[in-house]
Design a protein around this nucleic acid. Structure first.
Length: 265
DNA sequence: AGCATTTGACCGCA
DNA sequence: TGCGGTCAAATGCT
């Protein structure tokens, strides 16, 4: 990607470009980068060795996804200059994605609801993530509800931490399937953080059994990506970011996250 | 039997 | 009153 072009063209005689112009330029560059990533992906798919090919395809896919996420963020920022509540891909794809509501709207509602349910003024963290693999966050989630959302193509699924009762873990997530240019993806809203994770770290004696339960990828319905077949096309950079920032250290063999697609999935 | 999921009812807010 | 979020009984699965 040629970010250099953005800075080197500036001359003293010209007025400094407006920030919207620079965003335009950045968007152009990102679009070009995304196209090149697609091209590269096609070339990489021709690699004969399966292991190398899959690894390369995965990497290119992540590059492509990062481009698209950045593009989304920039575009949504131009459309809605007031910064959204969450920075990660907020507003992306939602205009034609089917829900008809902005992501930050969902976040605002989440905060409102949590507030009225007793956590007065709690500043709990909320993250929004676009991914094609909502099941793949290595936590154990229990589905507690499903709701058809107005103007949404797919129902919204409600999950809470599988240890919300045992360990009073407040973590929740909402999963909303959407589609963008025919590509299905999921808007995952993560609410609050896992305290069960901390508990497991504090209780080494029980960690072995607990860890294998937390990391529950047993569900066959949406099978977790094997090492050689990571989801590529829409694998979310921000999801990875979330995982790397909040995951406990875990052994891969126990990895399982429950995710059951709703009707029509 | 124990656990997870489904689904209709209920609640609070705008 | 309609909507989104949650609850909890019923149901299904292993």
């Amino acid at each position: 990607m040629s970010t250099r072009r953005l800075s080197s063209k500036k001359t003293r005689s010209q007025p400094p470009p407006r920030s919207s112009d620079r965003r335009d330029a950045a968007i152009q560059e990102l679009r070009r980068g995304a196209e090149l990533a697609d091209l590269l992906k096609k070339q990489v798919e021709l690699i004969p060795e399966p292991n190398r090919r899959d690894a390369a395809v995965t990497n290119v896919g992540e590059i492509s996804m990062a481009m698209e996420s950045s593009l989304c963020i920039l575009q949504s920022e131009m459309e809605h200059p007031s910064s959204p509540e969450v920075g990660v891909a907020a507003g992306c794809y939602s205009s034609d994605g089917g829900t008809g509501e902005t992501n930050s709207g969902a976040v605002a509602r989440a905060r409102r609801v949590r507030h009225r349910r007793g956590r007065h003024g709690a500043d709990f963290p909320i993250k929004e993530i676009l991914t094609d693999a909502p099941e793949n966050d290595r936590f154990h989630w229990r589905k507690y509800g499903e709701k058809n959302i107005l103007n949404a193509e797919y129902p919204r699924l409600y999950y809470k931490c599988g240890y919300s009762d045992d360990h009073k873990c407040p973590a929740k997530k909402y999963v909303q399937q959407q589609s963008h240019n025919g590509t299905p993806f999921f808007l995952v809203t993560l609410i609050d953080e896992h305290t069960c994770e901390t508990l497991f770290r504090d209780e080494p004696s029980s960690s072995s059994s607990n860890a294998s339960q937390v990391l529950d990828f047993t569900k066959p319905s949406l099978s977790p990506p094997e090492e050689d077949s990571m989801p590529v096309s829409m694998h979310s950079y921000s999801y990875d970011e979330y995982l790397s920032s909040s995951l406990p250290a875990i052994s891969p063999d126990g990895d399982r996250v429950k995710f059951s697609p709703g009707p029509g999935w």
